[in-house]
């Protein structure tokens, strides 16, 4: 899922400073699962904003909505009937949702309430970790199911570098060395001989480096 973190309240208050009528839009997708932008967070944030504005002596009207997904036009369109009554949309979706809002409603600004952090999963209750960089050319079959692009701080395809120490990365003793994980896993699978193969340079044109990407499925297009 896409993992996000709510921006500090101060930053949000500064962003919405010019407005007195706001749509606060949550998303029931990934950001609800990672407890950053779902129905519950919309409720809490709306209340925090109202309290802060009240203290400033400038009350604000907030329309709380939480859409099924903000990355789908069908759901984004659901606020059209009342969007004209508001001055801005504060979206608690990931960056995709904010941009879809901006694309659909051109008369008022769409503001990000979250920092979209990474594509990852829940390691345990309350802890989310990055697992994929969306490089567009998966190599997990070569590296024991552990992603060198994400887990190695230098994205080495032929690691580990000389900074791997006791299974830890040189950037931080809290960070496991991605290549130590890969090697341990290859050993478990009885595939350590794979390590001797040199993995050639990656084609980054399939990644973000090639410009904004698009997946087009003729069979689904109408």
């Amino acid at each position: 899922m896409v993992v996000g973190e709510q921006k500090p309240l101060e930053e949000i208050l500064e962003m919405i400073e010019p407005y007195d009528r706001l749509i606060l839009a949550g998303c029931k997708g990934c950001v609800a699962v990672c407890a950053a932008g779902g129905e519950r967070e919309v409720r809490f944030l709306a209340s925090a904003i109202k309290t802060a504005r009240k203290a400033q002596g400038r009350e604000i009207e907030i329309r709380e909505v939480t859409l099924e997904r903000q990355c789908d036009p069908e759901y984004v369109e659901q606020i059209r009937p009342f969007v004209g009554q508001y001055q801005a949309i504060l979206s608690l979706a990931c960056g995709v949702g904010v941009q879809f809002m901006a694309e659909h409603y051109r008369q008022i600004p769409a503001l990000p309430g979250l920092n979209t952090t990474f594509v990852g999963g829940a390691e345990r209750q309350g802890v989310w970790v990055e697992r994929c960089q969306c490089c567009g050319q998966c190599v997990l079959h070569l590296t024991g199911g552990i992603c060198p692009i994400t887990r190695c701080s230098k994205s080495l395809l032929n690691g580990p570098c000389g900074g791997s120490s006791n299974g830890r990365c040189e950037i931080d003793p809290e960070v496991p060395c991605g290549w130590q994980l890969i090697l341990d896993r290859l050993k478990e699978l009885g595939q350590l001989e794979r390590y001797l193969e040199i993995i050639p340079p990656k084609d980054w044109s399939l990644s973000r480096d090639g410009g904004p990407r698009k997946v087009q499925r003729e069979d689904l297009m109408r």
């Binding site: 791997s164 120490s165 299974g167 390590y195």
Partner: peptide, 19 residues
């Protein structure tokens, strides 16, 4: 090229040199 015989895991450090 460089190699660090003191980095971990030790058991693949010579293999990395081989690469």
């Amino acid at each position: 090229a460089a190699e660090n015989p003191f980095a971990d895991p030790f058991e693949i450090r010579h293999l990395r040199l081989a690469k």
